[in-house]
Amino acid sequence: MKKHDQDFMKRQNRLTVFQIIKNEQPISRAAIAKQTGMSPTTVSRIVSELTEEGYVHETEEQASAGRGRKSSLIRLLDTAVISIGVELDRHQANIGFIDVQGNVLCSGNFPRSSGDTPEATVARIADIIEELILECDIDRRRIVGIGVGLPGIIDVEAGIVNFSVQLGWKNVQLAERLKELTGLQAVVDNELKVKALAEQLKGSAYGSNRTVLLGFGNGVGSALILEGEIYRGVTNSAGEIGHTTVDPEGMMCDCGKAGCLQTYINIPSLLSEASKIKPVRTIEELFAERRAGTRWACYLIDRALAYMAITINNVVSMYNPDSVILSGEILDKFPEVYEEITNLCYTQYIWEPLQDSFTIVRSKLHEHGVIIGSGLVAQDRYFQLN
């Protein structure tokens, strides 16, 4: 076997052992060897390396139910590795420091405007990271990288934002610029894909084999998890359901096409339609009009909820998942719509043979989902490289 193949296998084995410890701790060396098929010697070598580097530690613990002798079990040190997760959205950037369990140690944010350049945004991210390190007393030596999740088509390997309608960005070398400003390795991915990863590891999709995550907010998108892996497609654009055409004679979308699905659901489109009748600045104002029984507001939101239910039917018919996770700003701000969407699904829109084949659940991670997922992706990249 060539040396680079051997090096690759060593890195993969190390990552596999680390992930097993992370997900199933406390665990014995023998159990790791049994799960992976690696030799006890290989497992012991990897565990010893991880122990010396301060990532794991061994403790003697009693066997289950208090019977038998104590065995040596391996646990992860939660703050052995810290990563930075960043969520970039149309109007705001959220930044958080994430430990190896996906816990948010501290976080901050700053507002964005549509006119902000990529350079200004990246410089502000670097400034906030520095402020949070000092404010939250973060150990710099433990920070292993930055993960960024944002809406759009992303070249993950190159760290380039190929195209983001919401941010107005095209061909932005985001990972490279972040590394230049912070000195940290950076990885960039689609926001819903990293959020789906977070839900798979510690949220609503835990234990699921085939999950679709849907995001309804400033845009509309989806991510598909198959056997614990994100399905990406050829160009990492799988799941861009918001730009499927539902009416070729419909409203114009930011992407330049007419009648995209998201023009009937997303927040900017709803506010644009509402403002034709009455100046409405925020989605909160629109929902307040609905609660007051204003007919046009009821119509706009009821139509949006119907299109959300139609979206669920479409992805269920296409992918046959065991669960569908609903997420995004609309669900986070107005949790009452979850039941309305679910009722619409089961009373009107879900194809009958599939009605009992899946569950509809809410995101457990809410506004932290993207920064958690981004941070965990950065950690995975670090362990793959090291």
Rank of each mutant, 00 (worst) to 15 (best):
T347R: 13
K2S: 15
W296D: 01
G147T: 02
V280H: 09
G68L: 01
G54T: 03
G239S: 09
A158R: 15
A80M: 06
L184N: 07
G145S: 02
A274L: 05
S39W: 10
V122P: 02
D254C: 08
L214C: 08
V156P: 02
R303E: 12
Y55V: 05
T16F: 07
P26K: 00
L305C: 09
L226P: 07
P353I: 02
E352Y: 12
P321D: 01
I325V: 15
N209G: 13
I129P: 09
E249D: 14
E229N: 15
A274K: 03
A306W: 01
L178A: 04
E180C: 10
E284K: 15
E24S: 13
T16P: 06
E249W: 04
L184P: 13
Q348G: 10
S39G: 13
G108W: 00
I133P: 11
I341W: 03
Q62F: 04
L134R: 15
S72I: 11
F287Y: 15
E273F: 14
E340D: 13
L77H: 09
K22D: 02
Y307R: 01
L50I: 07
C345R: 01
I310T: 04
A63Q: 15
A205T: 08
N13V: 01
Q384V: 02
G215L: 03
D127A: 12
I160H: 05
L331T: 11
V370H: 09
L300D: 04
K278I: 05
H57Q: 07
I225Q: 03
A65M: 13
T347N: 12
Y307N: 06
D254S: 14
Q384P: 01
V144C: 11
S83F: 00
M38S: 07
E60S: 10
Y338T: 07
I325N: 08
I330L: 15
R142G: 05
S72E: 11
S269C: 01
V144W: 00
A33N: 08
R291P: 02
N209A: 04
E119L: 08
Q348C: 11
A93N: 04
T244I: 15
S363C: 11
L150R: 02
D302G: 14
K195T: 14
A223I: 08
A198N: 11
S113Q: 14
N266Y: 04
V43D: 01
T59W: 05
Q12S: 12
M252A: 14
D78C: 00
S317Q: 09
V56E: 02
N343C: 09
S317W: 08
I125A: 00
L77P: 04
G373T: 09
G145A: 03
T16G: 05
K193Q: 14
Y299C: 00
N314H: 10
S237G: 14
C136R: 11
V220D: 06
P268G: 03
N209C: 06
G375Q: 03
V122N: 07
L261Q: 10
C136G: 09
A126I: 06
A304F: 01
Y338M: 09
T244R: 10
D137F: 15
N218M: 05
E135K: 15
R69E: 11
A223N: 06
I46Q: 00
L201S: 05
D127L: 12
I128C: 08
F358D: 00
Q92W: 06
R141S: 15
G85W: 04
G239F: 07
